[in-house]
Computed example of a mutant assay.
Amino acid sequence: MAEGGDSGVKEKPHKKELSISEKIEKAVALKEDGNQHFKSGDYKDAVKKYNYALLYLKGLGEDPTSQIVPGVKSQSLTKSQKETRNKTLFACYNNLSGCMLKEERWDRVIRHATSALELQPEGNSRTFYRRGTAYLATGNLDSADSDLKRAAVLSPNDPAVNKQLIELGEKMKEFRKKEKEIYSGMFVRKNKITVEKN
């Protein structure tokens, strides 16, 4: 293995047609390289590796993301290949959401976590935590509530999840207070107008 966690795998798919097994192997190796970059805090290179891994998997089997690439035809996979493809796709999307979380690129956190959950709706606590955190940061409190509560069910003792739930609770209280002020202000103005008319 090359220095820095690189396996020496060529990142960009070649023009030469690779077999399904070769594409899956290259995608898995690139995902592992991405994991090494992620662990070392090199999110830019991790993102690059995960994206290249996804390129190798586009169009393989019933990949729901293959519709993104026009002209790519699905290829049949064995049961084992499907499992490896789905596991690798999920990991890449989930880890991309983690990279984007570190960079506070909330729209991309949501997009990548959602792609991961389309592959595995049960997800894992990190997937729901990341998307819930992004929803919270963008003010989508209902979606944040749903995702963070799901993350808490999956990992009840996770301090990061519990911290976000506390922040969510505070933002919801603040939102309700502002909402109450708006509605009470509307009620007072309506009564004032009614009194003036009389």
Rank of each mutant, 00 (worst) to 15 (best):
12 K>S: 15
79 K>Y: 15
131 R>I: 14
144 A>G: 08
120 Q>I: 05
53 A>E: 01
187 F>C: 12
63 D>I: 04
130 R>H: 07
118 E>W: 00
127 T>W: 04
31 K>L: 09
172 M>H: 07
183 Y>K: 13
13 P>M: 01
132 G>F: 02
44 K>N: 10
116 A>T: 04
179 E>K: 05
96 L>T: 00
111 R>F: 15
115 S>V: 03
81 Q>Y: 07
170 E>F: 02
133 T>W: 05
152 A>H: 12
57 L>C: 07
144 A>F: 06
196 E>D: 12
47 V>F: 00
46 A>M: 01
64 P>E: 07
80 S>E: 15
75 Q>M: 15
107 D>A: 03
36 Q>D: 14
101 L>G: 06
19 S>M: 09
15 K>A: 15
195 V>L: 08
48 K>R: 12
198 N>A: 05
54 L>F: 02
146 S>Y: 10
136 L>K: 03
3 E>I: 09
190 K>Q: 15
154 L>Y: 05
130 R>G: 04
39 K>F: 09
77 L>R: 07
101 L>F: 01
70 P>N: 02
118 E>V: 04
123 G>C: 03
116 A>P: 13
87 K>P: 15
32 E>T: 11
51 N>K: 11
102 K>E: 10
177 K>L: 14
51 N>I: 10
53 A>G: 06
29 A>V: 04
142 D>C: 03
94 N>M: 13
51 N>C: 08
153 V>M: 08
110 I>P: 07
182 I>L: 14
143 S>N: 14
49 K>W: 01
58 K>G: 09
158 D>L: 04
121 P>T: 00
31 K>G: 08
178 K>D: 15
66 S>G: 14
129 Y>C: 02
24 I>D: 08
122 E>G: 04
19 S>Y: 07
136 L>E: 10
11 E>W: 06
64 P>A: 00
174 E>A: 08
74 S>Y: 06
91 A>E: 06
105 R>S: 13
112 H>A: 08
33 D>Y: 00
109 V>Q: 01
190 K>H: 11
7 S>E: 11
100 M>W: 01
32 E>P: 15
82 K>S: 14
35 N>C: 06
114 T>C: 12
177 K>R: 13
78 T>E: 12
54 L>Y: 03
186 M>F: 06
42 D>P: 13
33 D>Q: 06
50 Y>M: 02
172 M>L: 07
181 E>I: 05
83 E>G: 10
131 R>H: 09
160 A>I: 12
52 Y>K: 01
56 Y>T: 03
45 D>R: 00
97 S>A: 04
18 L>V: 08
49 K>C: 08
82 K>G: 12
124 N>R: 01
63 D>S: 07
152 A>L: 12
105 R>N: 13
164 Q>G: 04
196 E>W: 03
108 R>S: 13
142 D>W: 01
36 Q>Y: 07
140 N>I: 05
121 P>L: 00
2 A>M: 14
43 Y>Q: 06
113 A>N: 04
92 C>V: 01
134 A>E: 08
58 K>C: 10
61 G>C: 04
156 P>V: 00
3 E>G: 05
195 V>N: 11
113 A>K: 00
7 S>A: 08
45 D>P: 13
25 E>R: 06
34 G>D: 02
